[in-house]
Amino acid sequence: MAIQRRRFLHAAGVGAILGLSGCTGESNEPQADGETTASGGSQEESSGGATQELTLATTTSTYDTGLLDALNPVFEEKFDARIKTIPQGTGAAIETARNGDADVILVHARGAEDEFLEEGYGVNRRDVMFNDFVIVGPADDPAGIQGMSSAADAFATIADTQSTFVSRGDDSGTNKKELLVWEAAGVEPSGQWYRAIGKGMGDTLVQADQSGAYTLSDRGTYLATQDNVDLEILVQGPLQGGPTILKNPYGVIPVNPAKYPDVNYPLAMAYAGFLTSPEGQEIISNYTANGSQLFFPNALSEDPQFGQYVPEGYSDGSGNGSASVSDAQFEQWVAENVPEDF
């Protein structure tokens, strides 16, 4: 707390300095104008040159934990690119890409990702990394869920005891996972004890802390926010022996250039390639916060991992699961792609 107060004073000081420098100028507006025009000019210059831009729509968990600050500069240097990162919830990030306003997405909700692939908006999905979710709550644990081995049982107990539960309620990956667990528990959460707040993970942890409530958090954000809240992990995720339902895999999906010809598809593929390359995977593996590794890379595998490219349970109907060897698929390619006068 003492450190935070010092930071706060420091910040107030910086604010005062900035404010004062505004006062001393005869008028700070044209000045600010000039600066921005200058930087705007250099931006145009650079995008007109070799530097390409990549718009990445991603989840707040990869952004707020600082992981992308470790990954993106390396990619930018290597590919002479500049990344515009838009941190949103998984639902919002997928929606942004569905509208063609992003080149690539890095998200964590397999169900929603599969839908995105099935609608044809995404191509070449790759697994990137994973961690897990944990159920956190006040140390005195009024519902008594500590150490339960089933997330569904823990949620059912919270519902039975009507203990306050704070939900993200924002269609994020974490929110989708939470709803999945409620479904597994056979509970439709409703009533005064269940509060959907529509905020990010950090806000949600703070609000749960302030109101003595339980919530579901990804482990990464919980670890990164730990200093600011008094919540404790009451049900562990699969990384520490907890139930597998709390798994949290991340995937990268470039946007289909056939749907949106203006997306930077080659650079999006390069980004997916970088994240899943030995170099990118090592950066992910080495990234820590508060002394803990936050994400575990899982892209590298000597054996084929076909499941990552297609929606879960995908089959082309011919029973062999691989579209390339299907005669029907080949005939369709011929019909669509070969000119009639060939």
Binding site: Q4, R5, R7, F8, H10, A11, A12, V14, G15, A16, L18, G19, G22, T60, D64, K199, G200, M201, G202, D203, L205, V206, A224, T225, N228, V229
Partner: peptide, 17 residues
């Protein structure tokens, strides 16, 4: 969103200034 309330308030102070 990150739970850094003090930092947020400090930025608010700059805005106010």
């Amino acid at each position: 969103r990150k739970g850094n309330i003090e930092t947020g308030i400090a930025l608010g102070a700059i805005l106010l200034a």
